[in-house]
């Protein structure tokens, strides 16, 4: 077993996929850093100040004005109200919701890449783990060895999990290292609020707690990792089921993108909450953003994802061990 994993790792590293992923993440982080930097600059120019309280106050007033417009939809209105209450809470407790620095950039990067970007990167590895053996014809060599088939697949799966862990770490290190050049490397101990819960009447702040940013970040990383593992397992399954890597990737990509679109319009279609792709934004629960569908909670999303994960894993192993290879 140990040897098998080593062998799979060797294949993975020889393919240089991780390096490609690192380069993609690096380039994107550079783009985001520059965009963020520009945004802060224009904001400063527009308001003539860099005092975060003034900026936040101005944001609150702007949000209030958007709320008074009759042209916005009810769901959007509710989301705005919640973010408004949150901003107000931050202001009243004198806490900067986005303390400048690389750790904050990292947090924002993670929160925004959890549902599309990181899963995409994971797909690059996961979607051809098995199907490439078919297309290269190496699958016969692999299966003629005196090793049980499930062991082969398991070693591939463990390699996938290890690769996912590496990708998350790469994303963390690169976003910290690159953005720090511009925003500075300090800010690990900055306070951040968590524990906002969204109820029918609005935002519940009775459970709100203070956390240091580094703890919050570790939690965010854990959630991103979980999402990446689930998405990785699903594309792994497709890679077993579909021999063409491109087709498998296409299916997964469609699912992910549909999730991003559905998130904005499913609030009246309650049963859509059982789709894995609308449950990917786990970090939003930590931040206290309104979920896309009423009644969704962290445990619900985790459980839903877990069911999808288990099902995908089962299907993969069943199909791989039973299928005729020719």
């Amino acid at each position: 077993m140990h040897k098998l994993i080593q062998n799979e790792m060797l294949k993975l590293i020889a393919k240089k996929r991780l390096i490609v992923i690192a380069i993609i993440i690096g380039v994107l982080v550079m783009l985001f850093t520059y965009a963020q930097y520009k945004q802060i600059q224009t904001q400063r120019e527009k308001l003539g100040t860099s005092d975060w309280r003034t900026i936040l106050q101005q944001q609150i007033v702007d949000t209030t004005n958007r709320l008074s417009s009759s042209r916005i939809s009810d769901e959007w209105k509710k989301q705005l109200q919640i973010s408004l209450q949150q901003q107000q809470y931050y202001l009243e407790h004198d806490i900067n919701p986005s303390e400048p620095g690389a750790p904050t950039f990292m947090r924002i990067f993670l929160e925004n890449s959890i549902d599309l970007f990181i899963p995409l990167m994971v797909m690059v590895i996961a979607s051809d783990l098995v199907s490439s053996e078919h297309s290269l014809g190496t699958v016969k060599l692999l299966l003629t060895r005196p090793v049980k088939r499930w062991k082969i697949l398991l070693s591939k799966y463990i390699t996938l999990c290890l690769a996912v862990s590496l990708i998350i770490a790469i994303a963390g290190i690169l976003s910290y290292g690159i953005s720090g050049l511009v925003f500075g490397y300090k800010g690990w101990g900055a306070p951040i609020l968590t524990g906002f819960s969204v109820t029918d009447t609005g935002l519940n702040t009775s459970e709100v707690r203070l956390l240091s940013l580094w703890k919050f970040l570790l939690m965010d990383f854990g959630l991103v990792w979980f999402v990446a593992i689930v998405v990785g397992t699903l594309s792994f399954m497709l890679s077993v089921l579909i021999r063409s890597t491109a087709a498998g990737m296409g299916v997964m990509l469609a699912a992910l993108i549909s999730g991003a679109i559905l998130n904005n319009m499913v609030s009246s279609w309650k049963s859509a909450k059982f789709f894995f792709m609308v449950n990917l934004r786990l970090t939003d629960y930590m931040k206290g953003n309104a979920p896309p569908i009423e009644g969704m909670t962290l445990s619900f999303s985790l459980l839903t994802l877990l069911v999808w994960w288990a099902a995908a894993l089962m299907v993969s192993f069943m199909v791989f061990t039973k299928r005729d290879v020719y």
Partner: peptide
């Protein structure tokens, strides 16, 4: 290294769930 990171992220996940449902505030 990957295995260690895997454990670290798993710990982070566990912590996040624990914190979300039963967290305590800290003094900062």
């Amino acid at each position: 290294v990957a295995a260690l990171l895997c454990l670290l992220w798993l710990a982070g996940l566990g912590w996040a769930v624990g914190e979300y449902y039963d967290g305590t505030s800290e003094n900062i």
